[in-house]
Design a protein around this nucleic acid. Structure first.
Lengths: 157, 157
DNA sequence: GTAAAACTACTCGGATATTTTTTGTCCGAGTTTGAGTGG
DNA sequence: CCACTCAAACTCGGACAAAAAATATCCGAGTAGTTTTAC
C-alpha cells in the first residue's frame, strides 16, 4: 500500500500558492521543488478538476487557490490527487466458494469490511483536521525570516 | 492508494483457521474461498514469515495459527501481507530546488510528514483494536447456526 | 509377529511470467499580452 | 493621441509511452504416513 508520490508535491504546491498573490505557472512550481515539470502538471490538473485551484491561461497566467488556505484541508488535496476511493475494497468473499452465503442473507457489510471502513474513516478524519494554512504556519515556525523573503523574491523573477 | 487484495484473503483465512483445530492446507483454504490457490499460497507464506501461522508439511499437514485468535490483531495481518511501511514517505522536497533548506536546519520532520504520520498512526491504532477473535464473533452473530456446522464438516472432508 | 526400510502421496517454499497500475513524457488548443498601424 | 488589428509567446489540457509494482503461476525440496520386505 503506497500513496501516490504526487500527493506530496501537490501539498507543497498548495502551501506555496497560498503565499503567492499572483498566479504561479506549473513550470515555476516544478523548478522551485526540483521535480518533473510534466508530471507535476498532471497533479495540478487533478487539483483543478477537484476545484481546489483555478488555472488562468496566456501570458503571466498560472495556478491560484480558489479559496482561502484555511478552508482547504489536507484531505481535500489527498483525495483530489490520489482518489477518494477507500484503500480496502470488499470483494464479498463470503458469497463465493462451496459454502457461499446467499446474497439475500448479506444485508449487513462483512465484519472485515466494517473494520477497514472504520480505520479508513479514522485516517480521513485525521487528515481533515489540518488545513493548508496550518501547514504554512508550522513551516513558518521552523523557517528563518530571511528564507521566506527570498522565496517571495524568487517567485517574482 | 490501494491495499493489496491479498489482505482480504489472509483475514478470511485467519478467521477460518481460528475455527479449525487441525492444520488446513492452502489448497483447501483456496477452494473454500474460491480464489487462486497459487496466489493465496503467497499470502500464507507472508503470514508464516511474520510468525502468525505455522506450517506443517507432509500428509495431513497445512497451516495453523501460532497463538490464540484473541491475540492476533487485524493490524498484524495487514502488516504481514501488505508491509509495515507507512503509505506516505517524505522525500524531503524542502531540501531541493533553488531555495533548498540546508539539511542541517532540517532537525524536525517536515510539517506535511508530521500530518501524514499522525493520520497513519490513527489508522493503525484503529486496526489494532480489533482481533481475529472479534471478527469471528461478529461473523457468528450474522450467521445461521447450520452454516457453521456445515463449514466444520466440509473442512474435515 | 515385528521392526526396519523404501515408497508414494501430499505438503510448503521460493524462483519465474503476465497483467495492471503508477510514473513520466509529449504535442496541440486556447488566451493574454504587447507591439505595430491606421485614423 | 487613441483605437483597432495582428502576431507572438506563454499558458494549460488531454492523449501517448516507459517503468514499477501487483497479480498469477510453475516446479523443486522436504516430510508424514503407508506399504513392503526381511528377520
Amino acid at each position: 500500500m503506497k500513496m501516490s508520490g504526487g500527493v506530496e508535491w501537490a501539498l507543497h504546491c498548495c502551501t506555496l500558492l497560498s503565499r503567492a498573490s499572483e498566479p504561479v505557472p506549473a513550470a515555476k512550481l516544478a523548478e522551485f521543488h526540483d521535480v518533473s515539470p510534466t508530471y507535476l502538471a498532471k497533479q495540478l490538473q487533478a487539483l483543478s478538476r477537484a476545484g481546489l485551484v483555478r488555472s488562468t491561461q496566456g501570458n503571466s497566467g498560472g495556478y491560484t487557490l480558489t479559496r482561502d488556505a484555511a478552508r482547504i484541508t489536507v484531505l481535500d488535496v489527498v483525495e483530489a490527487v490520489d482518489g477518494a476511493l477507500p484503500a480496502f475494497r470488499c470483494t464479498e468473499v463470503r458469497q463465493r466458494g462451496p459454502l457461499a452465503t446467499p446474497a439475500q442473507d448479506c444485508t449487513a457489510p462483512c465484519p472485515i469490511a466494517r473494520v477497514m471502513d472504520s480505520a479508513d474513516r479514522a485516517w480521513r478524519d485525521s487528515l481533515r483536521t489540518v488545513t493548508i494554512a496550518d501547514l504554512v504556519a508550522d513551516a513558518d515556525r521552523d523557517l528563518t525570516p530571511g528564507t521566506l523573503r527570498r522565496a517571495q523574491e524568487w517567485l517574482r523573477a
